[in-house]
Amino acid sequence: MRREIPLIITGVVGFTYIIQFFIPHWPFNIMEHMLTDWMLIIFAFAIWLGVLNLMKVSLDRISKRTKDWPYALVTILGFLFIVIAGFFFSGGRRFLDPGTPFDYIYQFIYTPLSATMFAMLAFYVASASYRAFRARTKEATLLLLAAFFVMLGRVPVGDAMTSFLPESVRLSKFADWIMNYPQTAGQRAIMIGIALGIVSTSLRLILGIERSHLGSD
């Protein structure tokens, strides 16, 4: 039964979602919202499972003094710091108001740390591009040339270098052509494949053909 019940629920919910897309009549018209609400409630409760697991794993590491256990200590202290500040020193339900300790932590610790991680992407893009654009094969050479023309076409110097040509064949137009035609065609081909893959996987899940995600009996 441990497999059958989730399979039945998956089938019923899956078919309900499909039916409500095509039938606007009551009761199908309210089902999407209802199921989405249920899902959000489940997600909200499930957060506690994650938090408790994080605490348990971190405490285990500290108590067993495993390798790099101080990081686990930082995790627990950070968690307690924001939870205590939010629950007890930020005005109860008004904890999101500007000026509360919780808001201060969010604005001046959490947001800059997130922004720092995101900003690091710029350096990673540079290093990944360097490797990807090495002209070792025919395909990599094509990629390198396409990237070279697109990047040059996106800056004023690209047009300046080709200013002697008619406007319709200048570098910026060529870059636009690469982006609008070969790039879009490739992207769409991938997206068609993805869409078909999603339909096929969904059908396998709804019909109970795909069961490996349900774990043990």
């Binding site: 990673y124 893009v125 990944a128 591009s129 490797r131 990807a132 992207q187 991938i190 997206m191 494949g193 993805i194 078909l196 893959g197 999603i198 096929s200 996987t201």
Partner: peptide
């Protein structure tokens, strides 16, 4: 199956399952 992230994975990983290959 995130089209915008595929180039990054292709550049940085040894093998990449592109879109439908993940579902297959």
């Amino acid at each position: 199956a995130m089209p915008a992230q595929l180039p990054f994975f292709i550049a940085a990983c040894d093998y990449t399952l592109i879109g439908e290959e993940l579902f297959a």
